[in-house]
Amino acid sequence: MEKGKKRRREEEEEEIEAKNSDADHSLSLGKNLSFSDTLMALRIMRAQFPQIDKVAIQPFILQSQLYSSVKDRTQVDRELESLRREKAVRVFKLNTGQDDHGIMFLDDYIKEIEHVVKRIEKRKQGDLEVFKWFKVHVIESKLESSIEHQELTRQLIDPTMYWFAIPNIGSILKGLSQGRKELLSLLNRRRYREMMLAALEKKRLRFSPLDMRFHLRDLIGSGHLKTAHTPTGMVVRVSKE
């Protein structure tokens, strides 16, 4: 009984905090949730990509995050395909165990590869010519998120498919999966499985290097969470199964 009272008291305090929040509204998710087109959404999310300690990685955006920000999913798919063909972005299939795709601006992806080359140079390991070949003959010509074995080696031997990957992303993908579970668990423990967005944004996740805004956009876009406008502000709640 005492536990229930304590939880209700915490929820009331968070609601008051959300009402009286003096946070910079230009940076709040509530003011930056919807965009008119995909490129604008990508640029804003790139600029808001969280600083991650111990892992040097260029900003990337999840396709689910775009779905949370541009109302028409068909528009997102169409504009994303156009940006991919224009070599403005690259799309990656992420190894999360789910159908996740990440988007990175091509310039950022090339920077990421250059960072890998510099690290190898310092260690004096490996043949760096392969990176030059990869940049000229693969990145510039293969725009899809995967490449077949014969295309990569120019030999018609093995039809195995290889997926392009973002260097150094392994630990972040682990945090992405854990952060999703942690955020959903947090909301599922609430009385109505919901929370004021302004208060929720200030929460910190223990098991993910990515910030709350990153996870909220992801889970809203994937349909696990939904938002609703109320007289006291925007509410985030768990979608009914």
Rank of each mutant, 00 (worst) to 15 (best):
E2D: 14
E2F: 08
G4R: 14
E13P: 04
I16P: 00
K19E: 14
N20R: 12
S21N: 13
D22A: 14
A23E: 12
D24S: 08
S26R: 14
L27R: 13
N32Q: 12
N32I: 05
F35G: 04
S36C: 11
S36P: 03
D37T: 06
D37W: 04
D37G: 03
L39F: 09
M40W: 01
L42R: 00
R43V: 09
M45G: 03
R46L: 00
Q51L: 05
I57F: 00
F60N: 07
I61Y: 00
D72K: 09
R73D: 08
R73T: 11
T74Y: 08
T74E: 13
D77I: 03
D77W: 03
L80I: 05
E81K: 13
E81W: 02
L83F: 05
E86S: 14
V89K: 03
G97H: 03
I103G: 05
D107V: 08
I110L: 06
E114C: 06
V116A: 11
R123E: 14
R123L: 14
L128K: 10
E129K: 14
F131R: 08
F131G: 09
W133C: 09
H137W: 06
E140T: 08
S145I: 02
H149L: 08
H149W: 13
I157M: 15
T160L: 14
Y162N: 11
A165F: 02
A165P: 00
I169C: 06
I169M: 01
S171L: 12
I172H: 04
L173Q: 11
G179Q: 10
L184P: 01
L186E: 12
N188T: 11
R193Y: 07
M195T: 04
L205W: 07
F207H: 15
S208D: 09
D211E: 07
M212G: 09
F214T: 09
R217V: 00
R217M: 08
D218F: 07
I220G: 06
S222T: 08
T227A: 09
T227P: 02
P231Q: 06
P231E: 02
G233V: 04
V235N: 05
V236P: 04
V238S: 05
V238M: 09
S239M: 13
K240C: 14
E241P: 12
